[in-house]
Nucleic acid binder design. Structure first.
Length: 991
RNA sequence: GCCCAGGUGGCGGAAUUGGUAGACGCGAUAGACUCAAAAUCUAUUGAUGGCAACAUCAUGAGAGUUCGAUUCUCUCCCUGGGCACCA
């Protein structure tokens, strides 16, 4: 038999495919287009590791399937080659990054090609190629001309080790993303891109794209849209007298409903108003010191998780709460960020955890203005929508025993689930303490009660009052009483019929209380509203005319009431777009002494990177380009006067923000891509990439795309129709693969030993595509065995081809493991094998679309085993395996194992490549079975299985079931209560 | 702290509009072939009890809903990832 020689066969077909050019995407074909995309790799010096190809193989399977389905597929690749590792290597060795990049990408190309991935190599791009970055610079200039690229002096995140400014996104836990050095703040002029101008659209347009839900969520969280209000607090008149035209303090809040509880204001240390009221502040020296100390703090110190909040009061000024008209103190504290909202907040300690913590520390007043609402635990008191509401006030009494540490509890007699404390409504004109005493007396008979204090805050209970035929909204307050002694009067018969009185120890109380009342009583019991902030919604209290209004509803009304305005803010910051580094696109701007910043004229693009001797950034933190006088000193394009080039370069996110557009027309030297080509190819139909790029690259490229759309340069508002992500491949043992751990697996080795097809099948089979999986060299053999099985079968078939003339009927049957499959013995192998084939085609077709490659392979393994045994069984007599069916199997296998499928296809007499054939269809008739096996349960436990005809109705199935011996034994002497029948699945007899 | 994903045999993992838990693969054990080994093929392989038929237990822990829960609800624990004073 012909040996399976993966090396020979794989090289042969890779050459052949390249020769006939079947993976070339044709511009403008009659076929419908399909654009599949993977994130182009960074060609590092370490070469490929086994994690790289996982997404390429996944999208390759989809691309190959699409071609078989008749699409004109664009599946391109290129190199995202600007970036720090190459630059750091250049600094260390003095080697030119241009040269290093070429070497690395040549190596990557050769490695990727050996995997048989159907990339269209003719459209390869490289972000470091001047022909490419000319257009990156050109797009930057469009941003500049529209005012969306601007220079700003700002405190940036500075990495003292890399000597570059970092974007917020590159700071991880206060450290530099690349080298781990703690990041410090530094004032620097930086280029910025105004991504915040697009925040609203970047958020909203997510509605229209097909991204995995987690990806949308991550983007939305990152953009951080929050709707609230801007409200102005004026300084109190005492300050106005001294300072003319003093502006008001503007705060941003998402909880305008809580304004009656705003007991102080906080300004961020950077707030400009602070110095404007300087003359009134009596403790100015201390304030200044606080602000100064704060400036020196590093990012880590300021954001440390266990950091205790600090602040200082601006003594001598007060602000006026526009809702209560109260004078409230003004503080400065660094827990308020200058960069978000207005840089000032109204503090509502009762309903915000941070304000609460601060108020506790500095002993500021805490006032409840929102009270939680719960439902009555009594079943007959479910609120009725058709009934009006009546407001009432009520008390809940926590009553301590005169002698022991026990508390009075009430157990309702009619409702076992209703367990509460003494409570009742306040009658008209009654003092609430009197109400408490009266209710204790009525419900428990105890008379000698002493009121100690009110505890906790308010809370509401909603219920339907059966006697009064109305809904009641009762506002409870919590009263703490101590009994002086056990003096008791008799309890009235009506009260006695309703409930039992019990004494419970303090630690038993919580478990005793009914679920629905538990939290509200418990909050009162512990005085909880004073111990933690209640951040939920509810009904307003202590809020003047807004009392009892729903807090959500109150938001708008209160904004109006205090003269604020609705406002939406975003967490997203503008994008720090400059790097003081060599290995990036030079920012194409010229600084003229007279004209200011002048864009490099388009005819002068690209601004090429000059050769330098030393790649090290300068000590002052400028890019090494600043040292090259010849390059820096230029004529101003406008006035021809003396001018200097900008020496900052772009971050490596720049080139990857638009590369997918270039693939549509990668050779164009007049435009970044022609409108015609873009119209044909974009948007990308399916983009698969890593989870680590969902907030940065994905957001940045959506931003660039929208900008280009606004200029009329791209035809769609969104670049990618669909986005999925893949999991990482981890080293053996589930740790990250890394050079330092020495557990990196090079795919070259695997390709050499087992072949590309085996590597591909294994990588797709090892686990769910979207999840991380640990590499296991031991397990690869399974994929190899599968391919060899397919191979052996193909060879045998081709050797016996003359015997294959068409459908025959065989005698034996395929039995399942347990041997239960008795009746199937009557049907033919031929038919049953055909059915398995069609089911497999269906399964594989559907699984590929869901990226469930592992289960698709599993079903093909089953099919291959069945085909092999069917073939072996009847080789001498009448074959059960139809040649056409085997070929269909090859067609569905082809996207996974392209080389072996092509070889066998060819060997079985096909002249044209398998990739010019078409994806097999499954026949619905062959998916249906006439006979099926259903499970018989007794009381939900599986007892046996029976075979039924598909068209059997419930009656027949029941009859068959009750004839079954095993079942008769199970139900003997028992009464059949109920029979549950689920069509085609099971029958359950309840006895 | 918050958000997201997940927790199933010795291992990777199947199965979720609630319906046979462990498909498929790896590993392991036994057998066939072989002088022998490798490869291949066949059988077994969640645990416990039993000669067996079979029974009981089992999807991170505990409760609940249901004729029936890996799947739904609640509480808690653990792992991975993201965010982190965003008012």
């Amino acid at each position: 038999m012909k040996e399976y020689d993966h090396k020979k066969l794989e090289t042969k077909w890779q050459r052949e495919w390249e020769k006939i050019g079947i993976y070339h995407a044709e511009d403008f074909s009659k076929k419908p287009k399909y654009y599949s995309l993977i994130e182009f790799p960074y060609p590092s010096g370490d070469g490929l590791h086994v994690g790289h190809p996982r997404p390429y193989i996944g999208m390759d399977i989809i691309s190959r399937k699409r071609r078989l389905e008749g699409y004109n597929v664009l599946y391109p690749i290129g190199w995202d080659a600007f970036g720090l590792p190459t630059e750091n290597y250049a600094i260390k060795t003095g080697k030119d990054p241009h040269f290093v990049t070429k070497k690395n990408s040549d190596n990557f190309r050769q490695q990727i090609k050996s995997l048989g991935i159907s990339f269209d190599w003719s459209r390869e791009v490289n972000t470091t190629d001047p022909k490419y970055y000319k257009w990156t610079q050109w797009i930057f200039l469009q941003f500049f001309k529209k005012g969306l690229a601007y220079k700003a002096k700002m405190a940036i995140n500075w990495c003292p080790s890399c000597k570059i400014g970092l974007a917020n996104e590159e700071v991880v836990g206060g450290n530099c993303e690349r080298c781990g050095t703690p990041v410090v703040k530094r004032e620097k002029e930086q280029w910025m891109l105004a991504i915040t101008k697009y925040a609203e659209r970047l958020d909203k347009d997510l509605d229209d794209v097909d991204y995995l839900p987690q990806i949308k969520l991550a983007q939305r969280n990152w953009i951080g849209k929050s709707e609230g209000a801007e409200i102005e607090f004026s300084f109190c008149p005492c300050a106005k007298e001294n300072i003319p035209n003093l502006e008001k303090i503007k705060v941003f809040t998402t909880r305008p409903d809580t304004i009656f509880g705003a007991t102080y204001l906080v300004l961020s240390p950077e707030h400009t108003l602070i110095s404007k009221v300087k003359s009134r502040i009596s403790n100015w020296a201390e304030v200044l010191q606080y602000i100064g100390a704060n400036k020196k703090k590093t990012e880590i110190e300021r954001t440390a998780p266990d950091k205790i909040k600090t602040g200082i009061e601006l003594k001598g000024v007060k602000a006026v709460n526009p809702a209560t008209k109260e004078e409230i103190p003004v503080w400065v504290a660094d827990y308020v960020l200058a960069s978000y909202g207005t840089g000032a907040i109204m503090a509502v300690p009762a309903h915000d955890e941070r304000d609460f913590e601060f108020a506790k520390k500095y002993d500021l007043p805490i006032r409840q203005v929102v009270a939680p609402v719960s439902k009555s635990p009594i079943p007959g008191q479910i609120v009725r929508n058709d009934m009006p509401y009546v407001d009432r006030d009520a008390v809940m009494c926590i009553v301590k025993h005169w002698d022991k540490d026990e508390y009075l509890c009430i157990q309702w007699k009619n409702h076992i689930d209703v367990r509460s404390m003494v409570s009742g409504g306040i009658e008209k004109g009654e003092d609430f303490i009197e109400t408490g005493k009266r209710e204790i007396r009525e419900e428990s008979g105890y008379t000698n009660t002493k009121f100690i204090r009110q505890v906790g805050g308010f809370s509401f209970v909603n219920f339907y009052h059966q006697m009064k035929k109305t809904n009641v909204l009762a506002r409870f307050r919590y009263l703490y009483f101590e009994l002086q002694n056990g003096e008791q009067i008799p309890i009235s018969p009506e009260e006695n019929a309703k409930h039992n009185v019990l004494w419970k120890k303090k630690n038993e109380v919580y478990d005793f209380l009914s679920l629905s009342e538990r939290d509200s009583i418990w909050n009162g019991f512990l005085g909880k509203i004073k111990e933690i902030a209640y951040v939920g919604s509810g009904l307003l209290v202590n809020s003047g005319k807004f009392d009892r209004m729903d807090s959500e509803k109150a938001k708008k009304e209160i904004i109006k009431f205090v003269g604020g305005k609705e406002k939406t803010t975003f967490k997203l910051r503008d994008w720090v777009f400059s790097r003081q580094r060599y290995w990036g696109e030079p920012i194409p701007v010229i600084h003229c002494e007279d004209c200011g910043m002048v864009p490099v004229p388009e005819k002068d693009l690209p601004v090429k990177l000059p050769k330098v001797k030393n790649y090290q950034p300068t000590e002052s933190g400028e890019s090494p380009l600043a040292n090259i006088a010849k390059w820096v000193n230029v004529q101003c394009p406008k006035c021809k006067g003396k001018a200097k080039r900008e020496t900052d370069t772009m971050p490596n996110w720049a080139g990857s923000s638009w590369y997918y557009l270039r693939y549509a027309d990668s050779k164009n030297n007049k435009e970044f891509a022609s409108k015609k080509n873009l119209k044909y190819w974009t948007p990308v139909d399916w983009y698969n990439g890593g989870n680590e790029h969902t907030t940065l690259h994905l957001l940045y490229s959506r931003f660039w795309h929208k900008f280009l759309f606004d200029l009329g340069l791209v035809p769609t508002t969104e670049p990618y129709k669909k986005r999925t992500s893949h999991g990482m491949i981890l080293g053996e043992g589930g740790v990250k693969m890394s050079k330092s751990l020495g557990n990196v697996i090079n795919p070259d080795e695997i390709v050499k030993t087992y072949g590309a097809d085996t590597l591909r099948v294994y990588e797709m089979f090892m686990g769910p595509f979207s999840q991380s999986v640990a590499w296991s060299t031991e397990s690869i053999i399974g994929a190899r065995r599968f391919i060899e099985k397919v191979w052996r079968l193909g060879i045998k078939i081709s050797e016996n081809q003359k015997n294959f003339s068409g459908p025959r009927v065989a005698r034996a049957s395929v039995q399942n493991k347990s041997g239960l499959n008795q009746t199937i013995q009557n049907s033919s192998d031929f038919l049953s094998l055909k059915k398995i084939l069609h089911k497999t085609i269906k399964k594989v077709s559907e699984d590929i679309e869901e990226m469930h490659f592992n289960t698709a392979i599993s079903s093909m393994m089953i099919l291959a085993t069945k085909m092999e045994s069917a073939f072996a069984l009847d080789l001498q007599k009448s074959p059960t395996l139809d040649l056409k069916d085997y070929k269909k199997f090859l067609q569905i296998l082809a996207p996974f194992a392209p080389h072996v499928a092509e070889e066998l296809w060819n060997m079985l007499g096909e002249k044209n490549t398998i990739y010019l054939s078409s994806w097999p269809e499954w026949s619905p008739d062959l998916i249906e079975d006439e006979e099926i096996k259903i499970v018989v349960q007794v009381n939900g436990k599986v007892r046996t299985e029976i075979i039924i005809q598909t068209d059997d109705n419930e009656e027949i199935v029941k009859k068959k079931t009750l004839e079954n011996e095993a079942i008769l034994k199970q139900i003997a002497g028992k009464h059949v209560k109920k029979v549950v029948y689920v069509k085609d699945k099971l029958i359950n007899i309840v006895v």
